[in-house]
Structure formats: structure tokens, C-alpha cells
């Protein structure tokens, strides 16, 4: 697989003509957005001034209309960006991968991962699917939300998870369910109380204490089977997962269910979206696209999922 620096080269060299064209449309788009924003603000201001009432309703209209207009205006630009930048980048990593800018990993798989509570609303985009070294892998951007009702009966939406969701074949056979979550209790409440809280987590299976202190510090493991959890999480895999977590620089959720490994990396923002107010040629902007893609597709190599064991043919 190509390295991050090779991909960055590809971004700047092969994609440069397209990027320049996109950069021009980005600049004019930015001007249009600023113009529309000013016009809308002025219009709403005039309405508010003449009505002198219904302020909260007007603010609501202002925000809703603004968001709608913004979405509508960047739609073409976004589509062009994804087709001429993200798609070639994915193909530069591996030609056989399929990319779709509109779909996402199915809700069934998301719920099946047992990583999060089941969402009431799920959206996502930038779906990539294919085989790397004979291992099936798919991932996409996911935004899962839950509906909350407050005492007045008003609905509000809270985010369960937003970020990258990866599903890949796993190279060992197992029957139980093992879930690895970021360790929040132990780092907030200390070892003793944290452990006690974790072992009494009613919504999860049995707590599994791992014998790698560094891993145990970052993650907490729940499983239906104490031995199987350790069979899956060998010393070498624990080390690789730790490295992966440090590389991603974001909270990582992992589960092993059925024949799959599920990984959710919480970025708390929509990924692979074109920047409107920063240059596409900006190094930081470019690096984010390249690094995130490399991280997701590199999972197979990083975790050595392609080294199949004898028993799994």
C-alpha cells in the first residue's frame, strides 16, 4: 500500500489541475455565500424591525433558511470535489475499491457492532468497499443520533456517534462477543472506583481485565467469554490496537462479533467534506483527507488481518 507521503505527493502532483479548477470555483462560491449571508441577514433584520415581535420565531427561520441555502449552494461544489478528489485518492490507494459519495455502512451493521445504543436516526456518506489482500473491508462516514424528549414534550437530537465506521473480516474464529471501549471510568475515577464501576456496568457483558497495563489504561474490555476475549486480543493485537489508537489521535471503539471486526473512530465531525473557507491546496487540509483515508484502508495491514490462521480457510 502507498504511504502517506506518497499519497500526499499524488494529491499535489496528479490532482493539481483539478484542484486549481476547484479552487477557483471555491473562491467564487465563497463570495456568493458571503453575499447571500449579508442579504439574508439584512432581509431578516428588516422583517424583525417591522414586526417588532416573534423574535424567537424569526431567529429560528433565519437559522433554518441559512442552513438550507448554504447546503443548496455548496451541493454542486461538494459533488465535484468528491468525484474529482476523494474518488481518485481512494483509487490511488487501491484500484479495486468502490467509492460512493452518497451511501453509508448499513444501519444493520452499525447496530450489529454492539458498540453504541441503537440510533433513531442515522446518516452518512463517503462509502468505500472492497478487498485488500483478500480481506473484505468497508467503511464510511456515520452520524448516528438519538431522539430525546424533554419534560415539555419537545424533541431534541443528541449525537451517539459521529466519525469513521469500519467493518472488516477478522482472521480468527470465535463464537462470543467482545467489545473494546475507550476507558473513561478508570481515567476519571482512578483505578479502584473505576474498576468497580466498570465491573458493575449492567448494559455490558462481563468485564475482562487484560494483562497489558498500557492497553488496560486506554481501553476497557467486555466479553461474553473470558478466554475467547484473550484468544482474540493476543499480546500482539493489543499492541497493534494501541498503536492504531495513537495514530488516529481520536477515541477508538472496537468490537469482535460474528466473523467481523468493527471499528468506530470518533471524530465528531463530517469527514471528507470540501473546505469552503480554507484553500484546498492548504497542506493541513490536504493532510486530513489523505491521513483519514490511509488510516481506514490501512487497517488490514496495520492489524495484520490478512494473516489468516490455519483453522480459518
Amino acid at each position: 500500500m502507498k504511504s502517506v507521503s506518497e499519497l500526499t505527493d499524488f494529491y499535489y502532483n496528479n490532482l493539481f489541475p483539478t484542484l486549481q479548477k476547484l479552487e477557483n470555483s471555491r473562491k467564487s462560491l465563497r463570495h456568493r455565500i458571503i453575499f447571500v449571508a449579508i442579504a439574508l441577514t439584512a432581509l431578516i433584520g428588516v422583517i424583525a424591525y417591522s414586526l417588532k415581535n416573534y423574535y424567537d420565531f424569526i431567529i429560528f427561520i433565519y437559522i433554518a433558511l441559512g442552513a438550507l441555502l448554504y447546503k443548496f449552494m455548496i451541493k454542486d461544489y461538494t459533488h465535484e470535489f468528491k468525484m474529482s478528489v476523494i474518488k481518485p485518492l481512494v483509487h490511488a490507494i487501491d484500484k479495486s475499491l468502490l467509492y460512493s459519495s452518497e451511501t453509508h455502512v448499513s444501519e444493520y451493521l452499525f447496530e450489529h457492532s454492539k458498540l453504541f445504543t441503537s440510533p433513531d436516526r442515522m446518516s452518512g456518506n463517503d462509502y468505500v468497499k472492497g478487498q485488500i489482500d483478500g480481506i473484505n473491508i468497508q467503511f464510511s462516514d456515520i452520524h448516528a443520533q438519538k431522539k430525546n424528549q424533554n419534560s415539555k414534550g419537545k424533541d431534541s437530537w443528541s449525537t451517539i456517534f459521529q466519525g469513521l465506521f469500519i467493518v472488516a473480516d477478522f482472521n480468527k474464529h470465535f463464537n462470543g462477543e467482545t467489545v473494546v471501549l475507550p476507558d473513561t471510568a478508570q481515567s476519571t475515577f482512578g483505578d479502584i472506583i473505576g474498576h468497580w464501576l466498570q465491573s458493575n456496568n449492567a448494559s455490558r457483558d462481563e468485564l475482562v481485565k487484560m494483562d497489558d497495563p498500557k492497553f488496560e489504561k486506554e481501553f476497557v474490555v467486555y466479553s461474553t467469554d473470558q478466554i475467547e476475549a484473550r484468544y482474540i486480543l493476543s499480546h500482539s493485537l493489543m499492541k497493534k490496537l494501541l498503536d492504531f489508537k495513537h495514530k488516529s489521535e481520536h477515541p477508538v471503539y472496537i468490537s469482535f462479533i460474528g466473523t467481523h471486526i468493527y471499528m468506530a473512530i470518533s471524530y465528531n465531525k463530517d469527514l471528507f467534506e470540501p473546505s469552503v473557507f480554507h484553500s484546498l491546496l492548504d497542506y493541513k487540509v490536504a493532510m486530513e483527507y489523505v491521513k483519514t483515508l490511509h488510516l481506514a484502508i490501512g487497517v488490514v495491514e496495520e492489524l495484520k488481518l490478512n494473516q489468516k490462521l490455519w483453522s480459518k480457510v
Binding site: D211, Q226, I227, R230, Y231, S234, L309, W310, S311
Partner: peptide
């Protein structure tokens, strides 16, 4: 290979037992 696979299972079982 089978032996290797069994060794891995034994290692997991041992670690669970030790814990």
C-alpha cells in the same frame, strides 16, 4: 499449524486463569 492454533488457545486460557 494445528498445534500453533491450539497453543494460542492455551495461551489465552492461561492468561484468563492467571487473572
Amino acid at each position: 499449524h494445528t498445534l500453533h492454533e491450539v497453543e494460542e488457545q492455551i495461551s489465552a486460557a492461561r492468561r484468563a486463569y492467571n487473572q
